[in-house]
């Protein structure tokens, strides 16, 4: 696929996502502040009733900021708007039309996912910009231009990792018709084990080595910790290397599963 075609698809998808503007802004602003409010009430209650100054290495403001960043960056990492798009194409037979397109199916889908992500990125910047007005940056958080740049690279890579990781799950639709439940289950699990619901430092010590080995932390905890200045440059580079290794693993798995799955595709839809 030529770069111009790739960016054309990205552009079309981004415009499509912004076609209902009222929805777009309601979704962005209200959705974020509602979630932010819950995190604030929950964690201030936890710190107040426990009497602790820090939990998992975070002060109360640091914890709320972590949650806000995890919500915002998590939306980019997950590429939520395209959740289940591949399995839906298999389910209703739309996959067939991609056979005549002058582009590979996965590249097409990835371009669409990037396009769907652009409006979310705008939401992220606009909502994120307000956060420091509500909460003063605590001493355990160090946001700089370098950490913002590092988080941006990390979250883009996380988005790609998520795209690859969900292909084998969505490929189950070749045999099982409807895999919506599997995708939701994956989202629940990755949110908990990847650090979107709570920082991984809050988990008990015995669980931490397991969580470090799993790929989920690269979707949420890694970009957020990078943004909040809790990852050194050396550790960041090492984690990026592991993240790309996971991309290679899931890419290979996706290739194998997809080849087998394609053999049972009938192209008639359900």
């Amino acid at each position: 696929m030529s770069p111009s075609l790739f960016f054309q698809i990205v552009s079309v998808e981004a415009r499509k996502r912004m076609s209902y503007r009222v929805d777009f802004w309601i979704n962005a602003v209200v959705g974020f502040f509602v979630q932010f409010g819950i995190a604030w009430f929950l964690w201030t209650a936890v710190y107040r009733e426990s009497g602790a100054a820090t939990i998992g290495g975070y002060t109360v403001n640091g914890m709320v900021l972590y949650f806000a960043a995890a919500q915002l960056l998590g939306r980019i990492a997950r590429g939520l708007e395209m959740d289940g798009a591949i399995s839906q194409d298999v389910y209703d037979g739309q996959l067939s039309r991609y056979l005549v397109y002058p582009a590979g199916f996965f590249r097409f889908k990835y371009a669409q996912q990037l396009g769907a992500m652009l409006p979310i990125a705008i939401q992220l910047v606009l909502c994120g910009a307000w956060v420091p007005l509500f909460i003063a940056l605590p001493s355990d958080v160090h946001v700089t231009l370098a950490t913002v740049a590092g988080a941006l690279v990390a979250v883009l890579a996380a988005n790609f990792l998520n795209f690859l990781a969900t292909i084998p799950i969505q490929a189950v639709s070749f045999w099982a018709d409807n895999v919506w439940s599997l995708m939701i289950a994956y989202r629940f699990l990755s949110a908990l084990l990847g650090g979107q619901m709570v920082p991984l430092t809050v988990f008990p010590d015995w669980a931490k080595p397991v969580l470090t080995v799993l790929p989920f932390r690269f979707l949420y905890a890694f970009p957020v910790d990078t943004l909040l200045g809790r990852v050194s440059l050396l550790a960041w580079a090492g984690d990026m290397a592991i993240l790309f290794a996971w991309c290679a693993v899931f890419g290979l798995l996706a290739r194998v599963v997809w080849r087998r799955a394609s053999l049972v595709y009938t192209g008639v839809g359900m």
Binding site: V46, S50, N178, L182, A185, F188, L189, V202
Partner: peptide
């Protein structure tokens, strides 16, 4: 799949509160 999905949702929800109560006696 739906049964499995909801079982995971229940487990994640309970784990969330279990993690919080590791750091506070009351909420």
């Amino acid at each position: 799949f739906r049964v499995g999905m909801d079982a995971i949702w229940y487990a994640v929800h309970l784990a969330f509160f279990w993690l919080i109560y590791r750091h506070t006696p009351l909420l």
